[in-house]
Design a protein around this nucleic acid. Sequence first.
DNA 1: ATGGCGAATGCAATTCGA
Length: 262
Amino acid sequence: MKIATWNVNSIRTRKQHVIDWLSANPVDVLCLQETKVIDKDFPREPFESLGYQVYISGQKAYNGVAIFSKQPMTDVSAGFTPVLGQELAEEFDEQKRVIAGVIENVRIINLYVPNGASLDSDKYIYKLRWLKKLREYLAKIILSSSHELCICGDFNIALEDRDIHDPMGKENHIMSSPDERQALESVLELGLKDAFRKFTEEGGHYSWWDYRAGGFARNRGWRIDHLYLTPGLFDRAINCTIDKEPRKQEQPSDHTPVIVEL
DNA sequence: ATGGCGAATGCAATTCGA
């Protein structure tokens, strides 16, 4: 089974890119972030025509997540509240950042973690609180179900310096500050391992490059899109790669797909 | 890195992203 994650930065703008990529790379599951569209306007048809079930949780202009799956998923849910309760709805589920479902005894949880803007921003506080809530959400799921987990998506965090093209002096930079790294480490302590690092130790491998200042051409990137697996799945992983091809196309997303093969 | 680029909204200029 192949599972991929890709922040497309608007599914309407990137529709043809995703069609082309899926035609060439017919993965079993594709998790998308930043779809940026309300559910009734999501372009379902081309992906259903490619043989995918389409599960979406979107909103106007910002955020938005989706899962495309070759086989129907069970127990599909959006947001934290189906697990943690309705009292969180306004604070955490107004922004559409979580969609999950089960396929072949694997629970796939697709995330778009808040960016945080900068360390002096209220959005950074929200990012840290959101990650703490994510930990509660995952802990409860782990306690109440026997499925293996694949937690994937745009985490907006480069966990280690080798995940950044130029890590010097990035302690106060969003996506690499100690507090947000610790918040993610705390999530991973539940028993999740980075699929990409099972196969690749060296730096220089990124999933996002800034549109500005020729970021991609100069490979000035960050590895912030991740696939984290519970131990049973991690053992089953036979490959995990970053496909830079879509980032080379005209009018690309600033992110590119990451794929794990189980 | 002061900004640089791109998308959405909505129709010009602003907000957001990372």
